[in-house]
Design a protein around this nucleic acid. Structure first.
Lengths: 133, 133
DNA sequence: AGCATTCATGGGTATATACCCGCGAAAATG
DNA sequence: CATTTTCGCGGGTATATACCCATGAATGCT
């Protein structure tokens, strides 16, 4: 019975597999999909606090903080205190913008590949199903 | 455009979210879904080597080794050398069997919840789409 | 038998992720 | 204005995950 298959495990496997597609495509830039996506979100919201960013990307604030620190170490993001002394303000550096530019077509190609695999409307149907979870 | 949405990120979010449903349900047993699933696989294949188990669950050998070590520390799994001195042989302990028994209905309830959310055939359609990736 | 090759694990390193706790800063309250 | 409460973050801890390298064991070939 298909009922024996854990929905969660199926999702986790798919998540790992698909992540690896993006990771491989972005590898030439020395960045992975989680980092690239976070960088994009920082760019869209900059200057942004860790808390706001965490809400946006639906990740724990401490997770976002640590992931952002990795981007900072890579020189792609700048982290400094905001007016509110409690806040860490994130902005994308020059190098970060370059990665965003160069990564875009690589990301596009994987998006296309996925859509091809899912067939027409496949991506939309998948998104709908996942949104229902 | 929906084309702006990263298929990978959608999947990762869904994976985290769904995992948390199972994790919460299994929490009373002090185990999470990754561990529960691994325990089930060990049980089905026992006695099994790390390599074989890794192939089965589609995880890196070293990942399986570390995850299994956590289960061992919890007293749910026994790890000992096999006839082939290189091999680590995994078996489920008494406590592990108890967890499998007690976890089954908890796992079932989450499966049902997911299926309810996805609607009739939803789970099947989701599985098909994910399998195409 | 002896050496080369293959094979199974383990451990190092690094990221992703979450939860909890404590500290210092800002805001609210009397 | 002083005190309390709220808020933002960093750090500790733990798991999940992967890649690479070292080591010791099994196998195969000469």
């Amino acid at each position: 019975m298909s009922k024996d298959i854990c929905h969660c495990i199926v999702l986790r496997k798919a998540s790992r597999k698909v992540s690896s597609y993006y990771d491989e495509a972005l590898a030439p830039l020395g960045i992975n999909i989680a980092q690239f996506s976070l960088l994009r979100n920082i760019n869209r919201m900059a200057p942004v606090s860790l808390t706001d960013l965490g809400v946006r990307v639906e990740l724990d604030r401490s997770t976002v903080g640590r992931n952002a620190k990795v981007l900072e170490r890579m020189g792609l993001v700048e982290i400094r205190p905001g007016k509110d002394q409690r806040e860490a303000t994130l902005t994308v550096s020059e190098a970060g913008h370059a990665v965003l530019r160069e990564g875009a077509p690589l990301w596009d190609s994987v998006q296309d590949k996925i859509e091809a695999r899912l067939g027409p409307d496949g991506a939309d149907r998948l998104r709908e199903l996942l949104a229902a979870l």
